[in-house]
Nucleic acid binder design. Structure first.
Lengths: 109, 109
DNA sequence: ATATCTATTTAGTGATGCTATGTACTGGTA
DNA sequence: TACCAGTACATAGCATCACTAAATAGATAT
């Protein structure tokens, strides 16, 4: 992962994961794999797990332990009502930022 | 400043300031004021100054001390060649992120 | 047995923006 | 004179975040 990307992910990776969970419940290993498919080539596994724990502590997600055929039990996270509110606020903040940056980008000579 | 915004600015504020400098040279106090006008209501002055120093140490900007009629001398920063390369890389990284997020946003139910 | 996926956890690190405060120059005003 | 506001820059200490690195553990195949 480039250093720029690492720094840029701060504050957005959380929203990315909440957005993924808003589409459908998922567990850490699965989320990591999906992110890698989508081009976040070197996302650290530990990062994703830590983030999920943080989201749980914030009360944004619900957790359910589900047995796996291929390994240890999975912790399946799903977005709850609080999480949806939080995600909407995330999109608002993100929109503001993108608008400002788009403006800066087109203003340049 | 909202906590979400604070975290989201990590990694992007640097690019924002470089983008401002790419349009025209500017000094810290001026940049802070301009950011506030553009809606970054509570950007901390100290943050901007620290960032400018960092950019200077990275060799992305050139500095010139210019006397002011209204106070201490200004440190006017301008983007140099290295800074422009860095800014272009920033835009590429930013584009990648916005594309991924736009996809996530439209995919949601 | 051991190697390989699958699946989660966590201690320690570096980078970033914020808080809070201090310094310094100029001009206006009581 | 003394004081204050506006301009302009600097910095020590803090919290948060993603990454590094390593460990644990279950399942299956070699």
């Amino acid at each position: 992962m480039s250093k720029q990307m690492t720094e840029m992910l701060k504050g957005t990776l959380e929203g990315i994961i909440l957005a993924i969970l808003s589409a459908q419940p998922a567990y850490g290993y699965e989320i990591t794999a999906r992110l890698r498919e989508q081009g976040f080539s070197d996302i650290a596994e530990g990062t994703v797990y830590a983030l999920l724990v943080r989201n749980e502590q914030k009360g944004l997600v619900d957790v359910e332990k589900v047995p796996s055929e291929k390994g240890p039990p999975r912790k399946v996270y799903s977005l709850n009502a609080r999480g949806q509110d939080y995600l909407e606020e995330f999109w608002r903040t993100w929109s503001f930022l993108t608008e400002r940056l788009e403006q800066l980008r087109t203003e340049r000579k």
